[in-house]
Write a protein that binds this DNA or RNA. Structure first.
Lengths: 119, 119
DNA sequence: CCTACAATTCAACAATCATTGAAACGAGGA
DNA sequence: TCCTCGTTTCAATGATTGTTGAATTGTAGG
């Protein structure tokens, strides 16, 4: 991931409403949520949520799809993953021994350790 | 890590000069660099670098120490680690199978895999 | 074709943030 | 003590960003 792209993603996540939207959509999973439902969930006006959704989409954090009259947004797990990778690469650059413990603390779930061991 | 703190960190990293400073200090390691040296390295005025350093310090991304007449800044690896953990927790929440592959891609170095396997 | 609905776009305004240069501060060395 | 160097603080300015409400676009049903 390029530095410029990473900065755009960081900027997107630094805003309260946008971060709440991302967390909401991560929880919602691949099914996603309609723009209107998101607006209601985070309690902001439709035009405002649209503004932020566009920003998040541009930052590669969410992805839209049309479904009947609604537009459904869902988290872009690839984008989120790439951002984590960028951060880890910078954090650990030349100092794996300092950052490595973070991996243990930040494990996603009980299966993660096994997946690592396989490698 | 709290959401508010994470947002402050994201905001800090979203600015070009600040991100360059963080990457510079990560590379510099625990020894860190003096404010003046940082200013020269990223090619901005002393007052401007001071402004950004204060912001990064407030965001928990760097830590200062006095040394003779200079003030030495170094990367706050704990803060960076916490931010990664926050991102992974949000990204993976309820979906470890989607995010887990990121760990393999983002390994710090060749020794990381062994350290994981040990766990 | 007309109406209703979901979402976006637009223009305007308020608020926040980045940059600059001058001035002030604090720690050493002569 | 006085002077110098490294850094920070301050006030002013310009640039970005967030918010609001009205107008617009696109989709579906009567």
């Amino acid at each position: 991931m390029e530095e410029r792209q990473a900065r755009t993603a960081f900027a997107a996540l630094s805003q309260e409403t946008r971060l709440r939207i991302v967390r909401l959509l991560v929880q919602a999973g691949p099914d996603g949520m309609a723009a209107g439902a998101i607006a209601e969930a985070v309690a902001v006006s439709p035009s405002n949520v649209s503004f932020h959704l566009k920003d998040l989409e541009h930052a590669g954090m969410i992805v839209p799809r049309r479904e009947a009259r609604s537009i459904i947004y869902s988290a872009d797990f690839t984008g989120l993953r790439d951002l984590i990778a960028f951060l880890m690469k910078d954090c650990c650059a030349g100092h794996p021994e300092i950052c490595a413990p973070a991996l243990a603390d930040a494990q996603c779930g009980p299966s993660a350790a096994r997946k690592k061991a396989r490698a």
